[in-house]
Design a protein around this nucleic acid. Sequence first.
DNA 1: CATGAATGAGTTTTCATTCAT
DNA 2: AATGAATGAAAACTCATTCAT
Lengths: 188, 188, 188, 188
Amino acid sequence: MDKRERIIHAAIEVFRENGIEKTKISDIVKKAQIAQGTFYLYFPSKLSVMPAIAEKMAARMEEAIRQSVNTENIWTGQLREMIGAVFTVTDEYRDVSTLVYAGLSATEHVREWEEIYRPLYMTVSSMIEEWELQGEIRETDPHRTARLIIGLAESAAEQIYLFDSFDAAEERKQQEAVNEFVIHALRK
Amino acid sequence: MDKRERIIHAAIEVFRENGIEKTKISDIVKKAQIAQGTFYLYFPSKLSVMPAIAEKMAARMEEAIRQSVNTENIWTGQLREMIGAVFTVTDEYRDVSTLVYAGLSATEHVREWEEIYRPLYMTVSSMIEEWELQGEIRETDPHRTARLIIGLAESAAEQIYLFDSFDAAEERKQQEAVNEFVIHALRK
Amino acid sequence: MDKRERIIHAAIEVFRENGIEKTKISDIVKKAQIAQGTFYLYFPSKLSVMPAIAEKMAARMEEAIRQSVNTENIWTGQLREMIGAVFTVTDEYRDVSTLVYAGLSATEHVREWEEIYRPLYMTVSSMIEEWELQGEIRETDPHRTARLIIGLAESAAEQIYLFDSFDAAEERKQQEAVNEFVIHALRK
Amino acid sequence: MDKRERIIHAAIEVFRENGIEKTKISDIVKKAQIAQGTFYLYFPSKLSVMPAIAEKMAARMEEAIRQSVNTENIWTGQLREMIGAVFTVTDEYRDVSTLVYAGLSATEHVREWEEIYRPLYMTVSSMIEEWELQGEIRETDPHRTARLIIGLAESAAEQIYLFDSFDAAEERKQQEAVNEFVIHALRK
DNA sequence: CATGAATGAGTTTTCATTCAT
DNA sequence: AATGAATGAAAACTCATTCAT
């Protein structure tokens, strides 16, 4: 794996373990097994790794959705699979997603967000469009709806770690609630 | 305004301007026009201001909801008013909610989130309970639903500044999309 | 002595001992007996101390000239005293003067040079003007002549350390050569 | 142009642009369009380029003097030509002479100065000796006088860029002042 | 000879925290 | 309670130097 990749992966791990605030570049390079100076060959600062992480996360989420959604399935099944994927990846990137989001908004990289998330939104809005064409759901603006659903699912997935006696059962319940919520929101 | 208030307000501004990471206590005291040492008479650290900010925001949101919701109205009207309130306050505290969320989750203060947001969630879940009792919406877990709706509305409101050619018309459209989404999600 | 003064004095000493290149800010603060961070309260970098040193050197030179020149004396005597003062101070600031000069030209402080040296040039050009008024020397542009003489004397004083078997006798010879050179250059 | 030459030229440029202190070897190689490691095949350090630069400048100056001085001319004419050459080359190497001087004195290379400048001084002191033999000027130590004159001329030429509203007219005036100064200093 | 990515020791720089006033 | 200059530990950052290609 090339050095840049190593840095990004190490950064994800360390940010998760220690939070952004407490993370030192020396922690990242230690985990990445590279020299201190090598970091600066690829990124000018700790925060500038954020967009790269966000990209990875968005790509991972899109990939998870593509993989888990069975297009043979009926729309509600597809929707459940899609939301499941969002929950899975949000869990994988637990804490990091929030930090990345806050880290991005703190920099001049905010505008990159749109670009980073576009493929993910495209994938989901295509699914919605398809369902609509098939006459299975009510008519909406597919792109906007895609963003609402992903926002809702992410927010719901993150809430678990904040509020609840956090266990697998609770996670399933929360996910099921989102499923029901969205299915009702879209049905004809 | 007393010094504590001055600190909180200054902190909101500089967190918004620079992000959490880049904010120094010296920035906060400069904006608050107090001496460096005075900060420590009120807060032990930068991040410990976060719960105070969260409290302000949550209280403001609850108050906005209480003020704007007319209980004489039918449920869809009340819902629209409630979501409108969330949009208004998220706009007021633009970016801050994300930062607060990240700031809290970066520390031991995470557990305070539950406590801080409880009154707000109670207010909204009471509304939902009432609608359910009146048989106007389908049956759900009102508390969980309340959190989903608020999460959805906040996420949608924040997205505006991130993604879109941000203008008043766009904001109205986004808000209307959330209204429709939630109304369909809850209707019988 | 206040901290800023302490830094300037320490910097002069350390620059002389080690040269600019090898001087660390930690050397300066050690010699100044202040904390590392205190340096940055007064100067943003090592090089930014340069103009302050140049100021001290120019002021010291002007003072030395004022003190050593006896206005009762005939002009050649005054001139010898003046050149002696330049030699003395250049010796005092041995090496540093060159470094300061090179250090200044490397920064954006070059334009300050004019201002820093102005009082010194004024003092010397006043002397020259007076001699001219008394009809003791030929007519020249006093200000320009002042700069030529100081440049010549400094250059000659610095050459000693570079070229010659450097000893007191050699210094006296060199100084005497400058005296003769300038006296002949100015006589009627 | 071979690599060694490329390095020397690039070094002159970046030393002039950034000063010695701020110049990195990476700046030099970038300007020279060679690889980082290649530098070390020719020079062991940044400062070790200095003697090479000094040599170039001294050789250039000697050559300029030889070329411009017409030995058929009377001594004042020759002197004017010689000083003109010093001004021309100091202009060509603007700022560099100071930097070289500081750069050499900052290292063990100081002693090389004598050797590097010897041919230049020899040329000028030969001229002075000749004038003396012809009985055209007063008796002095020709070698010492040569160094005084060159030091004076260089200092005067450098001053132009530092102090004055720098233009061609100003340069001519300054040069003329030096001519007059030296002619008076040497005449019988 | 030439390259340039990688290194890591050495410095600079930051900034939360203290404490005498 | 309030101040803000001073501190120094800790972190960021630099850049000369190496070495496998």
